[in-house]
Design a protein around this nucleic acid. Structure first.
Lengths: 195, 195
DNA sequence: TTAGTATCTGAACGATGATCAGATTGAGAT
DNA sequence: ATCTCAATCTGATCATCGTTCAGATACTAA
């Protein structure tokens, strides 16, 4: 039994980037953003401290990769949640729940996904994944809105609700027992308001 | 001309805590949260590296003090903005504008006020000031809502709109040219939805 | 004036992110 | 099968960071 999380007999790791992202998200989940360090991630992956730099450039690069994968997970999760219901409003609510669930079940990803100052927002993969998640969200809202609501309003509504969910999760304003109620309130109120 | 920002001939600084908070917010404004360091703040204040610890315990303590003062500024700013108008909806919008303006004009404070993991939320002064700001906000929303809307709905609405503003600012979703429009959309939609 | 307390210094300690020359390995060309 | 080259990883180094602690300094109250 080696002390490293990942032991290996070969000089080359094989799939180091993937392992670094996974271990990085674990560190984030356990110690939070301020407890995160490249050295800790390297230790857990069983490689030298300088190894991660060759794949991600610097700490921000690794954090950005983690955040990008997080948005990918979020998009997939929202897609799945929405497909469980046929009612348009319910699907938007389900997506919001998926958004919130991300913060609960995957705290490692949630801890970094929206920390604007810690990720490289110009990173292509990051933009792809984050836009994918938001676009799914906006699309569902469009379907839930009345047909006579114009596109500009729909766009504003999508931005507003996305921001609302981010705020509720980021500020930890959603208590478990009233999560369903508060989220549905936000969705229903918005839809009623643009009707 | 000394190199320190604050030169002094006395051994005791006089009002070090206040200066540390001011210089700290400047560092945050210039270099962001990840560029912030206790040593840099101490350098600018012209004191030894260890001096800040005597007043704020550790880095989190100083950041918490900065955040608390930031919420105090926000509350004052919101109060001022709201008093400029007599229309209830306009006052809520004005408060939201003040919230946003905080992120533009005082980036040093805004950078830390909502970074939950970096401040000590149990700090008494922090709680006082942040609650003061939110309560002002909730009160204004209550006055803007119809009289027959029950208290629970008002409470939900206040939380929702507060979260929305936080999300819009934190995610930098408010473009300058459409700030007024987007904020008014969020306020009006919410008020219309709970009517 | 004196004693006591609050404030500040200066020098440590361990840990971190980043860098760079050099070692090791895998993959394609011959 | 061998060679060559690029990709990958190591190990050491550097400046910087937060925190701690004994001791120096200065304010305050008796």
């Amino acid at each position: 039994m080696r002390s490293e999380t990942y032991s290996r007999d070969r000089y080359h790791h094989g799939n180091l980037p993937e392992v670094l992202i996974n271990e990085g998200s674990k560190v984030l989940a356990e110690k939070g953003v301020d407890g995160f360090s490249m050295r800790e991630v390297a230790r857990r992956a069983g490689v030298a401290v300088a190894a991660p730099s060759h794949h991600f450039g610097n700490a921000k690069g690794l954090l950005t990769a983690i955040a990008a994968q997080g948005f990918g997970k979020l998009a997939t999760s929202m897609d799945l949640a929405a497909s469980a219901s046929r009612d348009c409003e319910d699907r938007v609510v389900a997506m919001c729940q998926a958004y919130r669930a991300m913060g609960m079940s995957d705290p490692g990803y949630a801890a970094i996904m929206f920390r604007v100052e810690l990720v490289d927002e110009s990173d292509q993969r990051f933009q792809e994944q984050s836009h994918r998640a938001f676009d799914l969200f906006a699309q569902a809202l469009k379907q839930a809105a009345s047909a006579n609501v114009d596109a500009a309003q729909i766009n504003y509504a999508a931005q507003t609700l996305w921001a609302t969910m981010h705020g509720l999760v980021d500020l930890k304003m959603i208590k478990d027992q009233e999560a369903e109620e508060l989220i549905r309130f936000a969705v229903r109120t918005l839809l009623a308001g643009i009707r």
